[in-house]
Write a protein that binds this DNA or RNA. Structure first.
Lengths: 173, 173
DNA sequence: TTGATTGCAAAGCATTTGCATGCTA
DNA sequence: TAGCATGCAAATGCTTTGCAATCAA
């Protein structure tokens, strides 16, 4: 059974191999940024990751984070996602099955989902237009369960309503 | 039967009503920008629209185009779309049924499509997570028919291959 | 006349690039 | 030692804002 540690080592090897294959160099900054990225499960912006990285080494600049995230993406370990707030988020990509997103416009929570049936219909649709798809993106915006509950609470008890959940990642304006 | 002119008049009235309801004013610039936008069927960027508007009145600034497009969007006549090239495109929204997009990454052609079945499955998916969706966006990137043909031509007759179609709107880098 | 509108210039943001310095291999 | 990597500052590209002059109602 693959442990968290196994997966990390596998992804680390892929990253190093990617760097080597391009004739580039392993550096402390790249190692730190990769490690930090791989040890999260959130949807992170560059700014988020930069902040996390700086906790371990305040001298790392944002430029390097940008450049390293590009390498991680090329290596197939990261994937760019956009949720409509003009920020680029990054999520894990290696061995993560393809999925789509529901985004709560109230609290920013991101729900990942996958539907074989939708995928199939998309393929069919593409065929209909003789379109050869390479990738796609399906996003739904709306209100998540908890925010619906919160809304209801506000209506019945305006003063004491408290958020019930800690959201995975908020969309910041 | 509704003519093109009828539709224009209807949309014009909606725009004017929207402006009035906010206590704002009708101006020559707003009229011109609205007219120009309504008389296209393309996916336009602000820059595109600004260029078109300036053909009739070179003194109109881009700021006014931004502000007027915002009003048109609020009024329900325009809708923002993004195709992944970091530009905001605008398309007609009033009385245009909801649709999704296939984007050719070769020539930039945009194909609009609609699938009742996909919409239904999305609703079902949302229900499963108790998510209350307000809107969504489905985009597929890939190669369109004509670019597939062009590819084939290049392989068999490298020198004389010519684009066969005029694309609706190219994605500019 | 009042206050919204306009266009310019400048500011904001996220992201990228130029470059001198530092560091890996 | 060669030349890639880094971080800063500056540049970029799109969009928004401040402001004085202009114009609709």
């Amino acid at each position: 059974m693959a442990t968290r540690r196994d997966r990390f080592e596998t992804e680390r090897k892929i990253f190093i191999e990617h760097i080597r294959s391009l004739g580039l160099r392993q550096t402390g900054q790249r190692e730190l940024i990769m490690k930090t990225f791989l040890s999260t499960e959130e949807h992170l912006t560059i700014e988020d990751l930069h902040r996390l990285v700086q906790k371990h080494d305040p001298t790392v600049g944002h430029t390097t984070v940008y450049r390293t995230l590009k390498l991680l993406t090329e290596a197939g370990l990261a994937r760019e996602v956009r949720f409509g707030d003009n920020k680029t988020y990054f999520e894990h990509h290696y061995n993560h099955e393809h999925h789509d997103h529901m985004i709560c416009t109230q609290c920013g929570r991101v729900i990942e989902f996958y539907s074989e049936a939708i995928e199939n219909l998309q393929e069919k649709m593409a065929e209909k237009f003789n379109f050869r798809p390479t990738h796609h993106s399906l996003r739904m915006w709306g209100i998540c369960v908890d925010c619906q509950a919160r809304e209801a609470e506000v209506h019945t008890a305006p003063s004491g309503a408290q958020p019930r959940v800690r959201v995975r990642s908020a969309i910041r304006k």
